[in-house]
Design a protein around this nucleic acid. Structure first.
Lengths: 204, 204
DNA sequence: CGGCAGTTTGAAAGATTTCAACATTTGTGG
DNA sequence: CCACAAATGTTGAAATCTTTCAAACTGCCG
């Protein structure tokens, strides 16, 4: 872990915000590459954040969702003009150079390389259904390990920008999986995995 | 740079090999994840290598091409069941733990994270034409910086597996760019960039 | 010369996006 | 508390892009 101690960390309360139709943010922005040069890292205490990067055509790509205890180095975000935003109401520990401990940074980098490699495989050769299956399994693991049911904190638009699909395609594949009996959707945010094995086969 | 000294490095001569139609390798394999546990890193002295990863459906993804002076840590390849193969006849320095210098490893990791981030943006939201434009500019920079003309060491199949496209799509877009007057193709391996600015606009 | 791998092109099939419409949910102010 | 507005979610149909399948061409090497 990059961030070991919370001592000196600046806790920040954030209200959640709703996504704007033009895919731009107005509220809930935790970090923008242009400001807070003293920030070094950030760790989620509660809630869910997303790491966003603007693309040249005005769209955005979400490179990561951050759940409680997940940390991220700011340099990586800053380098690509990114921002970190609240998906839900969140509490965050902001860490400056003197409060963040660099110890273990190398292992963190290795872990990130591994995660990005996996993401490269996913974006490269998986189709929409496979991407969504992999996504649901990932979220299941991160949100409620071992449970069949979990609640997605992010919108279909967020999922689309994470998987590099259109929101409509994401939606269609949710519906498809549901009518295939792989998952159940009591409401749009709640996912119950009915048959994990075939889902793993599709998304692996 | 991960690898600073060549002292103690094992130079390895490799004959080039041609890609087999079934997309499998037989010769020219430098490294497979299953063998040579003592290997730590590798640096290209001459020629061009590719870093390949097999996918679950039998296809492969090329995560990187390695040109002279490029180095790569083996762990990263090993972790994802990958292999490193010669694209052209190549000379390679194989480095074991005692010959490789770990110094600067952290900067190397940071650089790799940056490169992978760029690749994520590329695979995520770029179409075939944009991918190819970005690829040609990248290769131009790495093979013959500042020159308008350069020679691609790899096949259309390799390019396809790097850009996550079918070889036919790659081919069609070469033809398209050529007939659009953006590039010229004296032969299939030689690329001359006629108008760099529009190419950069497309591929950025 | 013949064969083989690589390259190129065409046509059809398949997947995803885009555009449009409508339904549902959420937040806000009266 | 309700009504309205705004945002999210869903579905359909057409358009676009990419892949797949097929065939032909090219260049190289034995």
């Amino acid at each position: 872990m990059l961030i070991r101690h919370e001592s000196g960390a600046v806790p920040l309360e954030l209200r959640g915000y709703t996504r704007l139709p033009e895919r731009r943010m107005r509220r809930g922005e935790v970090f923008r590459s242009s400001d807070r040069g003293d920030l070094v890292a950030l760790r989620v205490v509660e809630g869910c954040l997303r790491v966003c990067h603007p693309l040249h055509d005005g769209r955005r790509q979400i490179t990561d969702f951050l759940m409680p205890d997940d940390g991220i180095g700011i340099d990586e975000v800053r380098r690509h003009n990114g921002s970190i935003e609240a998906v839900t109401p969140a509490r965050v520990a902001l860490l400056t150079a003197d409060t963040a401990e660099a110890e273990g940074e190398s292992e963190l980098a290795q872990a990130r390389i591994g995660a990005m490699q996996a993401r490269l495989f996913m974006l490269g050769h998986k189709n929409a259904r496979e991407k969504l299956a992999a996504f649901l399994l990932e979220m299941s693991e991160r949100i409620a390990p071992g449970e069949a049911s979990f609640r997605l904190p992010m919108s279909r638009y967020d999922i689309a920008d994470y998987l590099c699909l259109s929101p409509e395609t994401v939606c269609r594949n949710f519906t498809q999986m549901s009518s295939d009996g792989l998952i159940s959707l009591p409401d749009s945010q709640t996912v119950q995995i009915l048959h994990r094995a075939p889902l793993e086969f599709i998304g692996r």
